[in-house]
Design a protein around this nucleic acid. Sequence first.
DNA 1: CGGCAAAACGCAATCGATTGCATTATTATT
DNA 2: AATAATAATGCAATCGATTGCGTTTTGCCG
Lengths: 351, 351
Amino acid sequence: MSKGDKKKDVTIHDLAQELKISPSTVSRALRGHSSIGEKTKKAVRELAKKRGYRPNAIASSLRTNQSNTFGIMVSWINRTFISSLIAGIEKAAREAGNRVIITQSHDIAELEKENLQALYDSRISALIVSLAMETRDYSHFSLFSKNGIPVVFVDRFPNKKDIHKVHINNFNAAFEATEHLIHQGCSRLAHFGGARHQAIYEDRRSGYIAALKKNNIDVDEKLILQGNSLSAEEGLMLAEQALALAPPPDAIFCANDTAAVSAIRYAKSKGIAIPEQLAIIGFNNDPICEIIDPPLSSIHHPAAEMGEAAVKQALAILAGKIETESARSVTLETHVVIRASSDKLGSLAKP
Amino acid sequence: MSKGDKKKDVTIHDLAQELKISPSTVSRALRGHSSIGEKTKKAVRELAKKRGYRPNAIASSLRTNQSNTFGIMVSWINRTFISSLIAGIEKAAREAGNRVIITQSHDIAELEKENLQALYDSRISALIVSLAMETRDYSHFSLFSKNGIPVVFVDRFPNKKDIHKVHINNFNAAFEATEHLIHQGCSRLAHFGGARHQAIYEDRRSGYIAALKKNNIDVDEKLILQGNSLSAEEGLMLAEQALALAPPPDAIFCANDTAAVSAIRYAKSKGIAIPEQLAIIGFNNDPICEIIDPPLSSIHHPAAEMGEAAVKQALAILAGKIETESARSVTLETHVVIRASSDKLGSLAKP
DNA sequence: CGGCAAAACGCAATCGATTGCATTATTATT
DNA sequence: AATAATAATGCAATCGATTGCGTTTTGCCG
């Protein structure tokens, strides 16, 4: 109760002394080393339990030079995609016997850098990162790579070679989303894009353009609305801009769901029928897709699986198992989820 | 690039040797100890930067017996409330110079216990917990409290005295939510409750009952629908049950938003007008409240602030500043957020 | 220039667990 | 029963930083 009760922890030395054996034997016994007799092992384990002994991971880490700790660096923890990603990482890391330290950059490059330093100081075994929106300079990651600490990027990754990453094929996903709209009969398709220096957004934009070209639809620059954060507010602004065009678009492929939902709400407020006058598809397949009316079509983005894949990737690197260049990059599958917001043909109602 | 490049880290010994001074001096210089000369400090700092020295937090922790690490134990990371809570904890902890290790119990008591052991092994400075839904036995927390490691409960806490916690006044919040419905003219109010062994749900239920009594409305047990996880599916079931009653309720106070949204959807599918025939209010004020149509009234639950408050509480305990019994429990403010789902009087439209 | 206090710095132990290399106890072999 | 062989266990250094206390250096005054 009072402040100063720092009962010292039981250590292997305490156990050793009580059993009149050496600390080395205790250490080996606890880890089931083969060269320790069964009776000794049993005695040690029993006393350990009896005294409430708990290994000191810090001391162990220092000696073995292995922290068994994964570091995570993301923009914001409280985002649907990110929190699912983290949930996946935590699960996979724990199952492999690792702890997880988490940090957030708030999308600020400077904070990202500071946090990376702190993670390094903790001597993490591996780092899993989804870049801050701001980040364009990747030099602070060399601190890890130069010291043999695996760095695996997830979702938002640097635009360069020789990195390990887990991602989705944003180009293809965007292509499919766009073609889906086209197949529904849309011909004036707008695109709401995110910050272009982030590869994921640039790829989604490219996929959109490629789909238009393949279907012989002219690419109209005015229909490409450049956003940045793709927040709800930004989505509203973009929707306003898009619908002010003459003629207005008959479809929108939005690079995330948050902004797409704003677009739906704005369009509805203007009395525009969705999907009849305006078909909309988002990206991520956030839970809000099912809540909004009409439900929002989207691209399923396997967040938790990406986290698990990132951990596996990191473990493979640590085990020295990544040899081929192709193994450096893991691409997970996405798929279009069709809901009412883009279902002009009524294919949902049929079955 | 190849596997075996474990360039050994630069240590204070390396710096010491190069400067022909002792490691103790380097250590003190880096920490700005007053008994070290200015020129020495400068020289040390410069060489440290030049050689890319980074302190080994593990070694430091071992020696000082301070890990500067907060442990978090929650049910699921990817839940709106929880992820915001964690975001708040991470922020406050970092600002106070602490790392954050995160674990999730998946609402399984056994996993919670295992994770707690692992956190203890990491010698965390303090623990912040939101209990697993399953948990009814709190004995594994004594491992921490007995060793002087602060444990602060957030949101879901044990039903006992002598614990530190950060919470909201669930009774009052529920009372206000219920009275709000009554003031809107409702008289047959249903309640969707969560697992009763969790104090937060029991308190919400009590608040609901108290509000009815105060307003001279008979408490009808059939109108209290007992849920457990209050998932979307469960919300659907409860809504079905509630609306099958004769006569059906004219309002629902649901102990979370997820289930409330399900209720809205179910009611709409049955052609029931909201809020005219059925007024609904949820709890948490999740983002979906604004997305669903009609927008869902709710109780604002300050997740991130609760996380920050929990960190402050833990730091205060560590500093030996918690003396009074009252200081052990921090209660944050909530408020009713009125939206269309319960606005029968149209007060929203007026201004 | 001697003397002394204050300022700088070094020694060596310490934190708790791990491990290479002995050393001792036990069992097997002939 | 003596010796080889094997199984068990112990010694002591180590990981990197910190710290109480002792030692050296510097600065200042008479």
